[in-house]
Amino acid sequence: MTDPSTHWRRLAGSAVLLDGFHALKHALRFGAEVPVAVAVDRGAALALAGELAPDVRGPLEALLTEVPQAVYAALVPRPHPTGVAALAVRPSREAALERLRRLPRTAPVVVLDQPRNLGNAGAVIRLAAGFGATGVVTTGTLDPWHPTVVRGGAGLHFATAVERLDVAGLPPGPVFALDPEGEDIRGVELPDDALLAFGSERSGLTAELRARADHLLALPMRPQVSSYNLATSVAMTLYHWSLGRGRGPGAPDALEAPEAPEALGAPEA
């Protein structure tokens, strides 16, 4: 049997770090290829799977190797409270791009226009996966597969398409961009093939993305509140889309816009 630490170091340069039990759980659920996984306490990790995720207990039992605390700490930059870590093969970029560009789509693509905060980007990917979005695209320099982003996404990068593109290379579809000068989102039904674009925390949408936008939308916000957190803005927008599709118990068949909102705001990334 190959020493897990040797196997780990051989793969670490190209693989995706799955930091913690929940990241590994989600990755396995959505078909990730995981060549190596370690745990400080294998029995405790399997017990946690039995309690919280019995569907992946079998794969974990076959995959997990117990290692001493010192070995585990040497393999990961920030040890996770669950004492579990794994390496996964990053999905094919070509397959992700094909999924993002395929029409018709049954769910929107979320676009983060030059985001800066790694944790926020991870939270958005987790949200997008939860809502069944087609994918998440980032523009700019932030790597959406950075270990901190994957940690924030709890392994759900494997549940949706995640790629970095420039604005000119965005997937096809109408762009609905969040901006304080936009139309109240409550009066707009978002189509399944939409690109939902959110600007950065400091400067909002770039001029290039704004020029690409087909519609500017604003979220309702009370006066003197300057912005929402990026993940909150994405959640509100995706929930609004889901209501327009009549998803969930009691969801209306069509949106009814309320009377004039108190104020409208843009997201904060």
Rank of each mutant, 00 (worst) to 15 (best):
P4W: 15
H7I: 02
R9G: 00
G13I: 07
V16L: 09
L17Y: 08
L18K: 05
H22V: 08
L24C: 03
L24I: 04
R29M: 14
G31F: 00
V34P: 03
A37N: 09
D41V: 02
R42W: 06
A44I: 04
A44Q: 15
A49F: 13
G50L: 05
A53V: 03
A53Q: 07
R57C: 02
G58H: 14
L60S: 04
A62D: 15
A62V: 03
V67L: 09
V67K: 11
V71F: 01
V71R: 13
G83N: 10
R90S: 03
R90E: 13
R93H: 11
R93M: 03
E94I: 06
E94D: 13
A96Q: 15
A96K: 08
L100W: 01
R105C: 03
A107G: 05
N117W: 11
L118W: 11
V124E: 09
L127V: 09
G130Y: 12
F131G: 00
G132I: 02
V136G: 05
V136I: 11
V137H: 11
D143V: 01
P144F: 07
W145C: 00
V149K: 08
V150T: 14
A154D: 08
L156G: 00
F158M: 03
V162P: 00
R164L: 02
L165H: 03
V167W: 01
L170F: 02
P172K: 10
G173Y: 03
G173M: 11
V175G: 03
L178S: 04
E181V: 02
I185K: 04
R186D: 01
P191A: 08
D192N: 09
F198I: 08
G199L: 05
S200H: 11
R202S: 08
G204K: 07
A207V: 09
A207K: 13
E208V: 12
L209M: 14
R210H: 09
D214Y: 03
D214V: 00
A218D: 10
A218P: 00
M221R: 10
P223K: 13
V225L: 09
Y228S: 04
N229K: 03
V234C: 02
V234F: 13
W241Y: 07
L243F: 12
G244T: 07
P261N: 10
G265Q: 12
A266D: 10
A266F: 01
E268T: 12
E268S: 15
